[in-house]
């Protein structure tokens, strides 16, 4: 176990043993994750915030049932996902529409869009605010099943197995959905990217 994980395990042990106030400290690094995860399901800021509070309270109440051999982040994400789904069901029931079935979309074009007049997106471009706004919109436009996988893997930076576990999917399905989500985003964002000036090659490689 790594030092950070050991520290976290110790924190959990102390909270369960009675030092309840420490839960504030335990949850702090994960607040964002809980919110973003629920937002990816409900797509509404105030619903996501209420849901995040509920999920955190629920995690607090049930911390005693957390198994030490599990990963706290995965456990917490599962709670967040359940909370998000519960809220989505309620919202959909209120709108008198049926719950969307989680089926793979067989049709659809999952080929990326070419960028002909361009070498590499410069750092300044990635820093631009409108590109961030466009990305948020593009992510919101993704089909639900793709957005949820994308959010955990690329926003929260879970690995494939953790994403699969949290969503109750098998890793193969996660990979397919992730691929499609990434390609769909690339296609949607190309209009914002292709007008950028060329920059040094290899400047912005992501070490994955």
């Amino acid at each position: 176990m790594q030092a950070a994980a050991r520290q976290e395990a110790e924190l959990i042990r102390r909270i369960v043993a009675g030092e309840k106030e420490l839960f504030h400290e335990l949850i702090r690094p994960y607040e964002r994750m809980v919110y973003v995860t629920i937002f990816s399901i409900v797509k509404n800021e105030s619903e996501a915030e209420d849901g995040a509070q509920e999920a955190v309270i629920s995690a607090y109440r049930h911390l005693g049932s957390f198994r030490a051999e599990a990963k706290f982040s995965t456990w917490l994400t599962t709670i967040a996902i359940n909370e998000g789904r519960k809220r989505l069901r309620k919202a959909k029931a209120a709108a008198e529409s049926s719950i969307e079935e989680e089926i793979e979309e067989k049709e659809g074009d999952y080929t990326p869009a070419p960028l002909t007049d361009w070498r590499e997106i410069p750092l300044e471009a990635v820093e631009r605010k409108e590109l961030r706004v466009a990305l948020r919109q593009a992510v919101a436009n993704l089909p639900d099943i793709y957005r949820q996988v994308f959010t955990l893997r690329d926003l929260e930076e879970f690995n494939i197995e953790e994403t699969a576990e949290a969503l109750g999917l098998n890793p193969g399905v996660v990979k397919v959905r992730l691929h499609r989500a990434r390609i769909l985003l690339q296609k949607q964002l190309v209009p914002y990217l292709k007008t950028m000036a060329p920059a040094r090659k290899g400047f912005f490689r992501r070490g994955l």
Partner: peptide, 16 residues
């Protein structure tokens, strides 16, 4: 190369 780099940069931006 352009497709790969653009996709990659979208992911960097996502994690920001």
């Amino acid at each position: 190369s352009a497709i790969l780099d653009s996709t990659r940069n979208i992911l960097i931006l996502t994690a920001d």
